[in-house]
């Protein structure tokens, strides 16, 4: 009986490894993780220019959760990236620890009842996080936590393997969404830096603050700036 269970567990993890060979490996890995673990959705998030950016998400709710964290600058993903340790909240409605005052209610409203983030790292190199959400509250088992960490290791190797195939000085093609997805935010940071006479880093902070105060997503606010429907300062 246990052998049969072990065998199935092993094959679920192996499916995540095999997904690395897909034409869109990041998305395929997210989907394989969702099939392998009792979670509703998954995202692969890498830090790019100070913003956690989803390389891929398995569904719209997972994408929305990442967008929220990018806007608010807090959440399990940021904590996992910063600490290099797994971070989770099995019940966002009744959290074990008071944290993420802005993110938790917003994530609940978006349809997540529990969130988990595993650091994507190799040794001291920290790349980002593999994040999961559940639509019902509840923790993962110890065994599932172990499997999830292994899946995050797979992500780390796949990201570097993609970059290893890129021409010197260029970005691996499968990593292109990291810039493409946020191009408007970076452009808006440039524009706001001129409007306020500050550096682009500070401009990004102001953009985030504006989005948070207005209850909007960072990407939407940035699009308004680039289209000149909005000026800061």
């Amino acid at each position: 009986m246990t052998a049969q269970r072990d065998r199935e567990r092993l094959q679920r993890i192996a499916a995540v490894v095999s997904a690395a060979d897909a034409s869109d490996p990041a998305r395929a890995i997210c989907d394989a993780c969702v099939a392998a673990l009792p979670v509703a959705g998954a995202s692969i998030v890498l830090t790019a220019g100070g913003i956690p950016t989803a390389l891929a998400s398995s569904d719209a709710v997972a994408a929305r959760i990442e967008e929220l964290q990018a806007t608010l600058g807090e959440g399990p993903c940021a904590d996992a990236c910063e600490s290099g340790r797994p971070v989770g909240e099995p019940d966002l409605a009744a959290p074990r620890r008071a944290r993420w005052v802005a993110f938790a209610p917003a994530a609940l409203a978006a349809g997540a009842a529990a969130v988990f983030a595993l650091p994507v790292r190799i040794g001291a190199v920290r790349l980002g996080a593999l994040t999961f959400y559940r639509s019902r509250a509840g923790d993962l088992s110890d065994e599932q936590h172990v499997d999830a960490r292994l899946m995050a290791d797979v992500v780390a190797h796949v990201v570097l393997a993609i970059q290893a195939q890129a021409a010197p000085g260029t970005l691996g093609p499968a990593l292109e969404p990291l810039v493409g997805h946020r191009a408007v935010v970076h452009q808006a940071s440039g524009m706001v830096s001129v409007q306020l006479g500050v550096g682009v880093g500070e401009a990004l902070v102001r953009l985030r603050a504006h989005a948070f105060a207005a209850g909007r997503e960072l990407g939407d606010v940035a699009a308004d700036v680039v289209a000149r429907r909005l000026r800061l300062g």
Binding site: A48, G49, L127, V159, L160, Q163, A166, G169, T170, L171, G172, L175, L178, V179, R182, A183, H186, Q187, A188, S189, G190, M191, V192, S193, V194, Q195, V200, V226
Partner: peptide, 20 residues
């Protein structure tokens, strides 16, 4: 990876600075 990413991001930011 970081270098390639930062280069691409700087280009987007510069587009914004020049456009403004």
């Amino acid at each position: 990876l970081e270098h390639a990413l930062n280069s691409r991001i700087a280009i987007e930011q510069a587009k914004g600075v020049i456009a403004e």
